[in-house]
Every structure is written in structure tokens, then in C-alpha cells.
Amino acid sequence: MSPIVSFRDVHKSFGAVPVLKGLSFEVQKGEVVALIGRSGSGKSTALRCVDRLETVDKGEIIVCGHRVSDPKIELRKLRQDVGIVFQSYNLFPHLTVEQNITLAPRWVKKADKASARALAQEVLAQVGLSEKIDAYPEQLSGGQQQRVAIARSLAMRPQVMLFDEVTSALDPQLTEEVLKVIEELARQGMTMLLVTHEMAFAARIADRVIFMHEGLIHETGSRDILRNPNTPELKSFVGVGL
């Protein structure tokens, strides 16, 4: 079976600064992969390349059968298959929770109002926020907003979910409620690629860990490499992280 996400020799520079220097990896269906590394190691850029929020200079990216590195890619199709959640939630402040969640299903997938509301109720139940369906984002805590953002992505029935440091703006307690939701998704078999600074969390749910260093994979393996790192760089990194 072909992988859900595949990077082959991906290069990317911001101006004169190389960020990805020939990155290659794959994510299989149902796999939970944690991308870790220092700030500036290229992990967030790699994640954003999956959803084509960044274009690459060289190399090939294939996501859910879409050739992302192709300039002529149909973004509307790619982005129906890929869900992404950001550090800053990015809920639409002028819309209620329900409207946030049903916006794309209604306009992109042409769902009718009733089935869209049912869908909103379903995904909100998944993140444990059924009672907030009519609230506005500003009435929610950071953790609740992030869970709504996750629900909004799930409503498109993506084949893979991307998480870009989704708990970095939250305090430990709110972090925990968001991580619980992600863990539950992992348990249900969702394919996920996470950029995270939560080493303990990565060690708990990741099937595989990719440690990035200076635009390349420096060390990769099962979650055990977080306990027993082989390279001095990962050793010093988790030494700080855990």
C-alpha cells in the first residue's frame, strides 16, 4: 500500500537560508509520526509543505495520491484530504463554533444545513465540546478553541491530520485536555504527523519519531529513541526536553 505522505529529497530555502536540505520520509496509513527538533531545524516548514502552505524548490512530495510538489496541483482536492491545526487555533472570530465547523463542509462539500449541523455535533462530541456549539470563539478558553479547531478539521473527514505545535500557546492544564483529544484520535487509527515540543507526549503516542537537525533527519526510530537516543544531538535535545 502506498504511503499517505511521502517526501523524497525535498529542498527548500527561504531566500539564501536553506531550511530543508534533501528531506526524505514516509508516513503510512494509521501511523502517528512525531517531528521533533530545535527551533529552526525545519520541522514546521516540512509540515507546512505537506499541505502546500510552502512550495518546495526541489524534490517530490506526494500526499494522499496528490503530487504536492507539482505546480499544477489541485489544491482544493489536496486540502480536503489533509487537516491541519495550528499553534494559534485560527478559528474565525466572526462565526460561531457550529459555523466555523460547517463552513467548509457546506461550501466545499455542498452539505445541506441539517446534515452539516449533525456533522458539527458529531465532531464536537469527539473533542468533548458538544455544549459549545453556539458559542463564539472569544467565549472559549484557549484549550477549548484548539479543540474546536481540531473538530473543524475533522469535519472534512481528512485522511491525514497535521498538528503544528498545537499546545505551545497553552498552559499545562489546557495542554493536557488538547493532548487527550489527539491521543483519542490516534487510538481510533487516524494518520497523524505532529510537530511538537511535548516530548513526554511524543513518547506516549508516537509510533515513530523523526528528529530533525539543520534541515535533515538526524535520527529516527520508534518512540524508544526518546529514552535511548543514539546521536549526541538528540541526547542533548531530549536532555533539555524531558
Binding site: L53, R79, Q80, F86, L91, P93, W107, R152, S153, M156
Partner: peptide, 24 residues
């Protein structure tokens, strides 16, 4: 980030403008 979030939900450019950006 609001433009980006709309993009990531597969909204077309005009949908992004009409539904997300203009109201704000």
C-alpha cells in the same frame, strides 16, 4: 493566519474572501 486557515479548509479564493476575510 486567517487567510491560511481558510485555504487549509479547501475554500476557493472567492469563498475565502466572501466568508472569512470580508466580514472581518
Amino acid at each position: 493566519t486567517q487567510w491560511e486557515a481558510a485555504d487549509c479548509l479547501a475554500l476557493a479564493r472567492w469563498e475565502r474572501m466572501l466568508l472569512v476575510i470580508l466580514p472581518q
